[in-house]
Design a protein around this nucleic acid. Structure first.
Lengths: 172, 172
DNA sequence: GTCATCATGTAAACCGTTACATGATTGT
DNA sequence: ACAATCATGTAACGGTTTACATGATGAC
């Protein structure tokens, strides 16, 4: 694969849970070549340099995969804004929730397409790929359910705000 | 609040979706003071410098909260390792899933404690706080359901690997 | 007295994105 | 011709963590 192809495959196949930019990939490829973890051809047509993993590269991959999972500090911009909901302009909270729905719907549509592609294959590789896919589906569905709950909560909030004396749901 | 307290409140209240380190907080507090967005007392007992938000600070907060939500490129270490499941040592995939279960269980326990604390209050602030809490709960439950699915898939994978001729679930 | 916690700050290191610079190939 | 895409790289910039340095307060 070329560096360019590495990036395509990452965004197409791991896109919903991983990301690498060219600024990471090309220097990494050079370092890996120097370390003997990949072999690269000279420049071919279109300046392409095809890289191939070596035995030591595969060993290094296994080493890295065996390292403990790093859980980076969370930063969820939607929740941060929602937390400060009382400082938001009217309707802004609802917009945030609507955007979350749109993102989750889009994600689910993408996952459905991949599902259709990979179904029928029962190799171990596909089993593992299906697990990562399923994670995305579960989380996206959870986000949709949560968003619906939020919409209801925002309805209640608006109702009580415009009609402070009434108990919510008691009509008016 | 002191910078130290800001950090405590962030990790206690927003901990499941946001994080700030001292290296961010203290320089930020200085910049905010210079910009007139916070007012700070001189050094009190224990060297504490108490900061308070100003009107312009609150305006700035609203400005920042109105900015579009940035969605950083995803990087999920667990899924990355699982994707390369065939390169993993035997049992490593299961360990990853088990760890995910432990993390989700811990998170849910923490959420339950907060739920108990904030229940009964129906102020707008609490409504928004409950939304962020509920997000954590929905996602954590989705992760648990996913993990159970993964365990089943790993069982099937191990069964077919040790007994390649048998159809999965046909007994033997 | 000493330990944990409260408290403030600085600086180096790290990681990663983004913008830039450049050029080949392919389709229209 | 020209645009889109393929392709490789470098460098600046920005945000964050981590480590370090320092000291007060309160509990035991």
């Amino acid at each position: 694969m070329t560096g360019y192809e590495v990036r395509s495959v990452i965004s197409e196949t791991l896109g919903h849970f991983w990301h690498e930019s060219f600024g990471q990939i090309y220097p990494a490829l050079q370092a890996l070549e120097e370390a003997g973890h990949v072999r690269r051809t000279g420049r071919g047509p279109g300046s392409r340099r095809v890289a191939e993993i070596t035995a030591s590269g595969r060993a290094r991959l296994r080493e890295l995969l065996a390292e403990p999972v790093a859980t980076p500090p969370p930063r969820n911009g939607t929740l941060l804004r929602l937390f400060f909901g009382t400082e938001l302009a009217p309707g802004a909270a609802r917009t945030l929730v609507d955007e979350a729905v749109r993102r989750a719907d889009e994600a689910l549509a993408g996952f459905a397409a991949v599902r259709a592609e990979v179904s029928g294959d029962d190799s171990p590789e596909q089993a593992f790929r299906t697990m990562t896919l399923s994670y995305g589906e579960h989380v996206a569905r959870a986000q949709l359910a949560w968003a619906q709950e939020c919409r209801d909560a925002l309805d209640t909030l608006e109702a009580t705000a415009s009609d402070p004396k009434e108990a919510p749901g008691a009509g008016g």
